[in-house]
Every structure is written in C-alpha cells, then in structure tokens.
C-alpha cells in the first residue's frame, strides 16, 4: 500500500516536472513560431537561439512589482491565479503517457491513476479553469476584466457542451471511459480515422476552451486591454500564463490519447522507440498546431462565436453521434 502511494507520488512528481518544462518551452515555442510566421526571429538573445529565454522570463516576473488593485475583492483576487493552474495539474493524473514498464520486478503503469471514469473526470476538472477567469474578472473590480470574465463564462458553457459531445463518438466506439482502454483500442489504427469529424470538432472546441485565437474573446487585446488579467501583475500574472500553457499541454495530451493513438507508434517498424517518446512527439505536434492556428486566423466576432457554436458545431456533433451509432448497429457492434 505504502509502496503504491510512493510510486504514485514519484510518477506525479515526474509528470509535474515534465509539464512545467512543457509550459516553459511552450512559451518559447509560441514566440518562436509567431516570430518565424511573421518573418522575424523571435527571442534570440538569451542562450543559443533564445533557448534560455523562459528562464529569463521567469526570473523577471519574480522580481516585478506586485500591484494589487486597491478596490479589488481580495480573497477572490488572490484565489483566481491559484485556480488557474489547478485544473491542468489535476487532469495530469489520468493521462497515460506510455504502456506499463517492469521495474524491480514490479509492473508499473505509466499513468498516475487508471480510473474507469477518466474522461468524465477530465471534463469535470477542465471546467474548473473557467472559475479562474471569472473570479479574476469579477474580483479586479474593473470594467475590462469583468467583460472578459463574462464573455469567458458564456464561451465556456457553449464549447464545453460541444467538447463533451465530440468525445461521445470515441466513447461509443471504444465502449469505455478509461483513457488507457481508449489508447489500447488504437493499437492498430488511430481513432482519428474512425472519427474524423469528432477530431475536428474536438480541436475547435478545445481551442475555444483554451481561450486561444481565433477564440480569444475573453482577452481580446484590442477591445478589452488584457481581458480578465488586466489588473494582475508579477507572479499572479505569471500564474495565469502558466495555467494557460499547462492547459494547452494537457488538452494536446488528451487529443493525442483520444484520437492520435496515444503512445503507440504510427508505423509498426518504428515501435522500438519507447512509447513516452512517441507520446511527447505527438503532443508537440498538436501543440504546434494550436500555435499555428493562433498566428494564422483573426479573432471571431462575439455573435459569430456563439452562432458558430450553437448553429453549426452542436448539430454537427449530434450528427456525428447519430452516424456513429448507426454504423455500429449496421456492423452489428451492439
């Protein structure tokens, strides 16, 4: 029992460290990709090709003056940045990064907790991140953060629904909520082949959940200054950013698990490369896709955002579920 707890703790620590690494270098990747897309170079000065930039950024944010809005609701104001990072870290627990390995005669699965409701847990936990944004917007006691927070709440409700419905197709095919089972199912063929529409809808909804362009209404710089984190500075601001990039990493990881075959290699002759490395490669590919989207498309107008969600994506997701069910009945799956 104690050994099991220790192993789980070690796994969590390693995963957390890797997540923080991804977050740090995610910010650098964002700036590098944006730079090169705009024919610039991005950060170049700190270390070779700017590789030490995340360290410099972190150091700078630590030493920044921490300004607290005087009329703010103090408890929520301090709570919001803390909540921002929590959902991503919680979600980390159910993401399998590889098959089980045998160490010291003990079989260790490369997932912290293989629970049979992993996907439900993920959906529940990821909805948490809207609290950070709404609390941040409300407690700042300032009009722009408030507007950003409200927009975010509306956006979350719309797209959370679509996110859940897009995953339904996968669950129907696999017949399990466990992420480990879902990845095992994709050993020979990726889920994206069976569920292409679900994959597209998932990626759109996930981008909206992450408040990233083209869905970054909550922090629309040109209209809302900085959105919900306008009144935050120093490490509180950094926590929001940490949360954003941690959420991006986790969402990419979930996309890899659900649609891109998890830790399995895409071609059988490449299977000598260990699973976690495949997982990381796929994760980076999805992460890059999110960056690529951001630096390509302009922002939606607010009404377009809502129309797109309710009038197009929702019916599409429902059609996908119906079609999946119909095909399964025809194939005699049930």
């Amino acid at each position: 029992m104690i050994v099991a707890i220790v192993i789980a703790a070690i796994k969590l620590l390693i995963l957390f460290a890797v997540l923080m690494l991804f977050v740090a270098y995610g910010t650098l990747a964002e700036r590098k990709v944006s730079g090169h897309i705009q024919d610039r170079l991005g950060p170049y000065h700190c270390g070779p090709h700017g590789l030490l930039q995340p360290l410099a950024d972190g150091l700078k944010l630590f030493f920044k003056e921490d300004i607290v809005a005087s009329e703010s609701d103090k408890i929520l104001y301090y709570l919001a940045p803390m909540i921002a990072i929590v959902p991503a870290v919680l979600a980390l627990g159910v993401i399998p990064v590889g098959d089980s390995v045998t160490l010291f005669g003990r079989k260790i699965g490369l997932v912290v907790a293989d629970i049979n409701v992993a996907l439900l847990y993920l959906l529940a936990v990821s909805s948490f991140s809207v609290y950070a944004i709404v609390f941040g917007g409300w407690s700042s006691n300032s009009k722009y953060p408030l507007l950003g927070g409200l927009r975010s709440a509306a956006q979350f409700i719309s797209y959370e629904l679509i996110l859940g419905l897009s995953i339904m197709g996968v669950i129907m095919v696999v017949g399990s909520f466990s992420l480990v089972d879902i990845v095992h199912y994709q050993k020979s063929m990726w889920m994206v082949v069976y569920q292409p529409l679900a994959f597209i809808i998932y990626m759109i909804a996930a981008t909206a959940e992450l408040n990233r362009l083209p869905f970054d209404l909550p922090e629309a710089e040109s209209e809302l200054v900085g959105g919900y984190h306008t009144e935050y500075s120093s490490m509180k601001f950094a926590m929001f950013f940490l949360g954003e990039y941690a959420n991006m990493t986790v969402t990419s990881a979930v996309a890899v698990c659900l649609f891109l075959g998890g830790w399995y290699s895409p071609l059988s002759f490449l299977s000598w490369i260990p699973g976690p490395i495949w997982f990381a490669l796929k994760l980076m590919a999805v992460f890059f896709f999110l960056l690529w989207l951001r630096w390509t498309y302009p922002r939606f107008r607010y009404d377009q955002l809502m129309v797109f969600s309710w009038k197009y994506l929702l019916p599409l997701a429902l059609v996908n579920i119906l079609a999946t069910g119909g095909v399964m009945i025809l194939l005699g799956g049930i």
Partner: peptide, 22 residues
C-alpha cells in the same frame, strides 16, 4: 480559404527572417 491561410503561414515559417539583429 481556411486551409489556404494555414498554408501561407506554414510557408512563412521556413522563409528567412528579415530581421537585422541590431
């Protein structure tokens, strides 16, 4: 058009930067 946009930005990723490292 959406795909076209993605193609344009992806193409620019590999173009040499016009920046002068002042």
């Amino acid at each position: 058009p959406l795909l076209k946009g993605l193609r344009v930005t992806f193409g620019h990723l590999f173009k040499p930067a016009v920046t002068v490292k002042y």
